[in-house]
Design a protein around this nucleic acid. Structure first.
Lengths: 210, 210, 210, 210
DNA sequence: GTTTAATCGAGACGGTACGTCGAGTCTTATG
DNA sequence: CATAAGACTCGACGTACCGTCTCGATTAAAC
């Protein structure tokens, strides 16, 4: 049976890790639960995900999960946060503009993969769960918006971007389309698409009458 | 008790309508259910919405609901579709550009109200329910994209918009930010915000080097 | 499909009968319903019997049934009463005593067949349904007890039975065992069993010390 | 409200028992459920008995009931079995014959009370439920028949009963009338009635021609 | 090295909502 | 007008999860 297989898989791993004198057991359980939750979400979807299933997959009692997180969404959120690269958003490239395009491509690539699936789930669930919405905003959305805004402001200071640009609006115009495509099922999140959005936004939609 | 109040409300209305020789009973039930569902979603939220509650609020048996829709999301979808104005998207204004801005404002206003709440719920639920995703795409997203794309293409033909613009990308840049703000809880969906997005997108983000 | 087959069966029969200028249509429906009900009880059991099923089997609307009987049990009761031979209970035989034994055998035979199944169902259902209990008592139990009591009394008058016998108790001693075996699943309701009960009751259980 | 009253009644009792360091909790629930079920059957009848009602009356979740018994009848059966005195059937009296009469009276008395109501329900339900029929036969009918048969056989051995008597037939003649009266609503199950049946059966119905 | 105190797995518990089924009522269209 | 068809309200069914709680067993720390 799948469950017991996974249980023993976790157990064996646990013993192995302990033998290596690794992290404390509590930390191992943490990881095992997050891993199990993500695995189940990616394979079976968030809706058919139950606390029981996570507990079984992780080889763990239900209380052990509830001791750490209040609900399924919080687990996925924790797993997602753990995966997010806390590093810099924009590579300090010699070409300011191209660096933006590259960052957008990186994000699109993430959205195409595992992170995209998690974001989709979290963003959707957040519509019903203010706690989660807050967490998502504070741990994902706002930090990245802040970094982007700062980067864009530096571009304004350096005279590369127009002075009358609002970084917040710029962020929305460039990145909202990625979220839109992630959720809407209207066309792919390809690099070509990213480029197109990027070019259009940069050049503007009107004739160069200014 | 709340329920019986609502039940009788529906019943009285039913008799009144029948007295007017109005719509067939079946159609009345349809409306009563949709109305009850929307009312409950708007007051108590989608998560705490149960088939029982809808049935009670509508003064209707559970089976009558299941006969018509397979789940809660489908009910909300039906209610939403019923509300959507199937008319033209862009008012044939003398000023092509301003007409776009007006349409964006109209949409933002809708998003601020009842429709926004429904869209939020539907879009979120659609992330877990492919059937709903399909319905939402076909009955909401795609038709409006199509109309917008045609309008934009006419702008290109008339030489108002640049010839090298992809209407699809233009749609995303202009409208995705509205969805983004609807969901993210990052700032309000005010007319001022709409204008800002509009202006930035139209003028472009770069210096007028073109 | 089974149902439609049966429906058309009834319909064809109906037309045939009508062509013969037979009983009024209402009476035909009556019979068709009772027949369908008995058929279903005998094949599928009383528990898995629904008004829908009867209506479908009889090719009849549900209201047509409810107009005639208040519930399933009443239908079976009606069907049962219709089958019961309203004639004499005891054949006027030359041998008074043997006539009793014969009557017991006749009853046992009936209990082994279709009537037994119906009695079992009715008697059981009557434990939960006072109306049915009354009907069963008045249309089945009491009439037969009365006839038997009279017959036994004639035996007393004629000096064949002891003068100090209470016919009611005699009825119970002779016939209750048949009902007991019908319900208990303890041994068969064979003629041999009937004879044994009969002999024991007649001779008494004690040594002939009297 | 009735339910909450009963719930708390059970709860308080639970705490009291726990304070006494009494039976394990699981056993308490068992008892509470059986008690609630019997109470409801005796007050409202078996037909209007629902799993929901039992659960509410016992202050218990539905699953807790389903974990233990498959249906209502099984619960009543369990409650009944628990009440049945597993002791000897016939008091070892100095007078063999009178001991039988006494036993019959004891049974009649039981049938007049709570046990009679339960037996009625169980016997009726058993006509539709082979599982229950089997349980009732094996846990009620057959054990008592066996004890009675042995007792009667000892009477034969001791020369008190006639040698040609079949204990099984004797059981039926003596006891079937009690079941008959229990179910038929034909006369009361009084001690006088028991005596009458007893006397008739013992003396035989015919003239002492033997 | 043993004892003590957490922490664990397992799983039963009360509860809520589900989706289905049948009873009995009421409506509509047919003949 | 009575009917067949079938939609309606109501309420019980049995299931699935939720989040809580209890129970031994296992582990880790304190002694």
């Amino acid at each position: 049976m799948k469950t017991s297989t996974n249980v023993s898989r976790r157990r064996e791993e646990s013993e192995r890790t302990a033998a290596k004198g690794g992290r404390p057991r509590s930390e191992q359980l943490h990881q095992a639960i997050l891993q199990a939750a993500v695995h189940l979400v990616l394979t079976s979807g968030f809706r058919s995900l139950s606390m029981d299933a996570i507990a079984a997959e992780a080889g763990v009692g239900r209380m052990t999960i509830y001791r750490r997180w209040p609900n399924k969404a919080a687990i996925i959120m924790a797993a997602f946060v753990m995966r997010v690269d806390p590093g810099t958003l924009f590579k300090p490239a010699d070409n300011f503009i191209e660096s933006i395009r590259l960052q957008m491509r990186t994000m699109a690539k993430a959205f195409r993969g595992r992170d995209g699936a998690l974001i989709r789930v979290l963003l959707a669930e957040a519509q019903f769960d203010p706690e989660l919405a807050k967490a998502l905003r504070e741990q994902w959305t706002l930090p990245r918006r802040k970094m982007a805004a700062e980067y864009f402001r530096s571009g304004i200071r350096d005279g590369i971007l127009r002075a009358d640009i609002d970084p917040e609006a710029m962020i929305d115009i460039l990145y909202a389309p990625l979220y839109y495509r992630l959720q809407m099922g209207v066309g792919a999140l390809s690099d070509a698409y990213v480029d197109e959005v990027f070019e259009h936004a940069m050049k503007g939609l009107l004739h160069g009458t200014k």
